[in-house]
Amino acid sequence: MEAAPDALPWEGSNSEPSPAIRAVKDITFGSIAGMVSKVFEHPFDLTKVRLQSQVLDSTARFNGPIDCLFRTWRDEGVRGLYRGLPAPIVGAMVENASLFLSYSELQNIIRWVNAQPLSQDLSLPQLALAGAGAGTVTSFLLTPVELVKCKMQVQMLVPESSPNPRLLPGPISVFMSVLRSTGFRGLWLGQTGTLIRETGGSAAWFTCKEFVGMHLIRRRAKASGLSPSEITRKDILPWESAVSGACAGAVFNFSMFPADSVKSAMQTEEELRPREKGVPRPTFLGTARAMYKAQGLRGLYAGCGITVARSIPSSAIIFLIFDGLSRRFA
Rank of each mutant, 00 (worst) to 15 (best):
V308Y: 01
M256E: 02
T138I: 02
L129A: 14
K222Q: 10
P19R: 10
V279R: 11
E210G: 01
V243E: 03
V154R: 02
C304R: 08
F40R: 06
I66Y: 13
R50C: 01
L69G: 03
P282V: 07
S37W: 05
L195K: 00
Q120V: 13
A132H: 02
S241N: 08
V137H: 01
Q52P: 02
F252Y: 15
L285P: 04
D75Q: 14
K293F: 03
T232A: 09
A87N: 05
A60Q: 11
Q126T: 00
L69N: 04
A290Q: 13
V145I: 15
S53F: 03
F100C: 07
Q191W: 09
E2L: 13
E271K: 10
F40D: 03
L300D: 01
E240Y: 10
R71G: 02
P144T: 14
S255M: 14
A294N: 10
N114A: 13
S202A: 15
P9H: 06
A250M: 11
D45L: 15
V279N: 03
A23F: 05
L189G: 11
P313Y: 00
E210R: 14
A309Q: 01
P86K: 08
P169L: 05
L51H: 03
T182I: 02
F29D: 04
I32T: 07
K38T: 15
S119C: 00
I66C: 08
W188V: 09
G296P: 03
R220A: 12
W10L: 08
C247L: 08
A294M: 08
S264H: 14
A87H: 05
T194F: 06
Q54M: 01
L300T: 06
E95F: 13
V148Y: 04
G80M: 12
L325S: 03
E269G: 00
I231P: 07
V174T: 13
D67H: 12
N164I: 13
Q52N: 15
E210K: 13
L141G: 10
L8D: 10
M1P: 11
R61V: 09
P5A: 12
F184M: 14
S123T: 15
M256P: 00
P171C: 08
S18Y: 06
F206R: 06
F175H: 07
F100L: 13
A246V: 07
G296Q: 05
A223Q: 11
L320W: 03
V148E: 01
V113P: 05
P165K: 10
F252M: 14
L179V: 06
T287G: 03
L129C: 10
V24Q: 08
S227R: 11
S261R: 00
C150M: 14
Q107D: 03
Q120I: 09
L51F: 09
T307A: 08
L297P: 00
A330I: 09
A248E: 05
A242L: 14
P282I: 09
P238V: 04
G201D: 00
T143A: 15
S202F: 12
G30H: 00
S104C: 09
T307H: 02
L297V: 12
C304K: 10
G225H: 06
N63F: 07
Q52Y: 01
T192N: 07
G77M: 12
P228H: 07
I306L: 04
A265N: 05
V36G: 05
L187A: 00
